[in-house]
Each structure stands twice: as C-alpha cells, then as structure tokens.
C-alpha cells in the first residue's frame, strides 16, 4: 500500500498529464461526431456573442460583395416571375376539371429562413459556420443551409437559444446526395480536407461521360434539400484506378470565403416520410 502512495507521489505530474490528455481525447472522440456536447449550447451562446461583435466590423469590408450577390439573387427571382413568360393560346384550352380534390390548394413543403453569418472558417480540417438565429426563431438540427443564390452551404448541427452552428460542405463528415444535371447520375459529395471551395463527388460510374463545367445539383433524396439546388460545377475528373467509379472534383457554387447571409431551409413535411419508414421497419422486424 505504501508503495502505491509512493508511486503516485513520484509520478503525480505524469498521472495528472495523463488525466488531462485523456479528458481532451475523450472530448475529441465523443463530441466531434456532430452530436451535441452538454456544454456546447452555453459555449455557443458565448462564442456567438463574441463572433457577432467582431462580425459587425468585418461585415463592412464585404458589403460590396454581399450587395453584388444580392443583386444577382434578385435578378434570378425576377426571371422566375410569371409575367416573364407568355403562354401560347393552346395552353388555355377550356377543360372540365374532374378531380375532386382542390388542386389550387398547395401545401408548403420548404420554408426559407434567412440568417446572418457571424462566424465562419475555411482553413480548418473541419469547418463550421455560426449564424445568429437559434431555436427561438425556429431553427432545429439537421436542416439544410444554402447561400443567398440558393446554392448549398451545409447542414445545421447544433442549436442554442439565439445561435446555430452549421457544418459547412468543407467538413470531413459532411455527406450530401448530389446529381449530375446532364446525365442524371447520383453520387455523394464529400470533402477531402485539402482545398477550400473544392469538394469531391463520389460514386459516379465510369460509363458516364463527364465534361469539365458540368453542373452538379442536389438530388432531392434527402429531406434536407429540395431537388435541383446548385452545388457546383465539375472542375476536374480523376480516374480512380482502384474502383469502377470516378472521383470528380467540384468547384462549389457557394463562395465560402465570404458568406454574410444564408438561408436555412425548413422541411415542413419531414416527419411524414420518416414515420412511414419507421412503421415499415417495425413491420419487417
């Protein structure tokens, strides 16, 4: 017994070191998969406040770029107005509606919520954004996030009262279902942790012909993003010799270096398919 105490006394510094190291490694392993840490809500509030103070200053330096992209987004929306299209007369043929359901009643599926970006990084191995909109304003985890021009930015992973943390596309665990617009092939978007603004599209088989500059859009398979949002354009096609699929480098449409506003997309019909899936699984068990 005396020897044990002697041992502890001699190596007390080393034991203390091991304890602290152990604590950090446990934190690293447990909380880095985007589960919520117990303290991350509090830490989020504090860092959010500091971040938004700093962003007040930083925002002025990017006003011009933010303004340009807002003008672009506006022009895009104007182009979608009904008055821009002329209907040929044949389309307005009189027809008797035999459907009993009120077809003019459209149910809203996606709700866009704007949010101000207060913190952003691109140089880390796993990058997060922090936005000034939290659970009080209807943000919940697992919502999709797009930039002003409606191209994909990432996914909400953690929410506190006034702030939310978004895992950007530039994150090792980010995985978004994507589609080549021209050929319709689906794959998944991941990031290799090397260059910001360049992500990788996996699982596209080698029979598909791909050209540089092809558009990549969201597939609509996940409940986070609607179909057809722009992710990026093909930048480089790498021939992965070990497998039968290509590795395609994609230049992201969202510019991660200067994001000032983002849209958080709330899927209002998310629960229904999930419950259906759950009940199917229950039957099969």
């Amino acid at each position: 017994m005396r020897n044990i105490f002697l041992f502890i006394r001699i190596y007390s510094n080393f034991i203390f070191f091991l304890i602290l190291m152990g604590v950090s490694l446990v934190m690293l392993i447990n909380f880095n998969h985007y589960q919520h840490a117990a303290y991350s809500a509090t830490a989020g509030e504090i860092t959010g406040k500091v971040n938004s103070q700093i962003n007040n200053v930083e925002y002025y330096f990017q006003l011009k770029k933010t303004n340009d992209s807002l003008v672009k987004a506006n022009a895009n929306l104007y182009n979608k107005l009904k008055q821009d299209y002329e209907l040929p007369d044949s389309a307005t043929k009189l027809a008797i509606d035999t459907i009993q359901i009120d077809t003019t009643f459209h149910r809203r599926k996606y709700l866009y919520m704007p949010a101000k970006v207060v913190g952003n990084s691109v140089s880390q191995a796993n990058n997060y954004l922090q936005v000034h909109r939290g659970s009080q304003e209807g943000v919940t985890p697992d919502l999709g996030v797009t930039d002003i021009n409606n191209s994909v930015v990432g996914t909400v992973v953690d929410v506190s009262k006034n702030y939310a943390v978004i895992m950007s596309l530039l994150h090792r665990q980010s995985n978004i279902s994507a589609k080549l617009k021209r050929s319709g092939e689906t794959g998944s978007i991941v990031w290799d942790g090397i260059k910001p603004n360049i992500v990788t599209l996996k699982d596209i088989s080698k029979d598909v012909k791909i050209k540089k500059g092809d558009t990549v859009i969201t597939s609509g398979f996940s409940d986070k993003f609607p179909f057809g949002l722009l992710i990026g354009t093909v930048y480089e096609v790498l021939n992965d010799k070990a497998s039968s699929t290509y590795l395609i480098k994609i230049k992201t449409a969202a510019d991660f270096y200067n994001l000032q506003y983002v849209n958080i997309i709330n899927n209002l019909q998310k629960d229904e398919p999930q419950q259906l899936l759950k009940s199917v699984k229950k039957v099969n068990e």
Binding site: L20, S24, I46, N51, G119, Q124
Partner: peptide, 17 residues
C-alpha cells in the same frame, strides 16, 4: 480555442502535451 472552432479537444490535447 476549441469552443470557437467547435472542435472540442483538438487543440487542448497538443497544448497539454
């Protein structure tokens, strides 16, 4: 630092070392 970069433990381990 980890609280700001949201990588709990990534910077504290090298610092302790």
């Amino acid at each position: 630092l980890d609280c700001f970069t949201k990588t709990y433990g990534l910077h504290s381990a090298p610092c302790v070392l």
